[in-house]
Nucleic acid binder design. Structure first.
Lengths: 202, 202
DNA sequence: TAGGTGACTTTACACAGTGTCAATTGACAC
DNA sequence: GTGTCAATTGACACTGTGTAAAGTCACCTA
């Protein structure tokens, strides 16, 4: 279990995440990772068959470290749909900065590599389940805004919470993570939660 | 004006746009454009110094052809902020499919190339002006939802209307352009336009 | 102590795509 | 004819990924 192979593999993953985070996921080459891990570029290929596989493995490694499931617990325990939506957005908004480097690298690799696209897609569909659950909770409470069908609201919320939007707001518009969470919450609440007078008009 | 040089240059641009559109902006090489225009790969470099410059020129060429300013006229002529917002979203939503191929190629080049990033940024900032104007019109009418400062609402609307979001909704979620326009309008209206009862609560 | 094994190293190379360079062709103009 | 300009062909540099082969070094075991 603690053989040198495993140690090196883990070291590569750790350094991949670190270097990727440091460079915002852009322009990190196999050689850079190797140097950071203190081995030769070729040695990286002894542990990971391709750049894409390394990125995918790094994503999984990071998920373990960051305890995704644990973070989502508060949202799942929410009593109302409104509460669930808010907690999900808060959880996600605090999660993105931690995964941004690796996520961005995978997002970029995705455009060239089929396998990377599949891996990214897989993760995003998992995230979409969370959106679906939040919208379903609103629907169950009859607090989903009347103009939305649950399926379409899920698509819209999912799109809204895309990493690229976080990137745009924080990197280009200069929003802090806190502001992102607050802003997205305000936006989603207004967009998806029925207001009293709209209910009356129904 | 109609010298063979100009003709070839225009032909390259036309074919660039066509091929890019055909392939969704992905995986189009200089050689592909050259073949489509009926010339050698090297000849393309006689007219455009680099791939990025070609993409930027193609973007400008497409804008001329599509008459961006003309399309925006209805939105600018709107009487109320609410109307202006809706018309802007409609205009933009119908514009994206026409530019998607070229936009996507530029968006991808942006990650590698500084000049492409600048060109893309420039276009997106121009688009942001439209968002700012729509939000300002709402604010002037006192119909901007009370939780938004105009600047933040502009950032949020701008992010919402990003090409990647259109891409996600139409390519991944299977929305039609019409559905996109309708959905985005509903989302933006709920998110940014004050409702009567909220006004009363103020 | 000899032989094997596994992790890693160095060197070299194939491949794709962008971009450069030089020599050449063919047409048109004066 | 000579100059010029568009375009052609062919060769090559460069970057980054991925493959392959040969060698080093430490550790394990008979």
């Amino acid at each position: 279990m603690s053989s040198p192979v495993v140690q090196t593999r883990t070291r590569i993953l750790r350094e991949t995440v670190r270097v990727l985070e440091q460079h915002g996921g852009r322009g990190v080459r196999m050689g850079d990772v190797a140097t950071a891990a203190g081995i030769s570029r070729q040695a990286v290929y002894l542990h990971f068959p391709s750049r894409t596989e390394l990125l995918v493995a790094a994503t999984r490694y990071l998920d373990e470290v960051l305890d995704v499931d644990g973070r989502l617990a508060p949202s799942r325990a929410a009593k109302t749909g409104v509460e669930r939506l808010a907690l999900y957005i808060e959880c996600w908004g605090n999660y993105i900065p931690d995964i941004y480097g690796v996520a961005k690298a995978l997002l970029l690799a995705q455009e060239k590599d089929e396998a990377a696209a599949a891996a990214w897609n897989d993760r995003m569909l998992a995230m979409k389940d969370g959106c679906r659950a939040a919208i379903a909770a609103l629907d169950r409470d009859r607090t989903l805004a009347p103009e939305w069908k649950p399926k379409d609201a899920t698509d819209a919320l999912w799109t809204l919470l895309a990493v690229q939007n976080w990137e745009n707001l924080t990197q280009t518009c200069g929003w802090s993570t806190q502001k992102y969470v607050k802003g997205m919450n305000a936006l989603a609440k207004r967009a998806f939660v029925a207001t009293r007078c709209q209910d009356e008009n129904e």
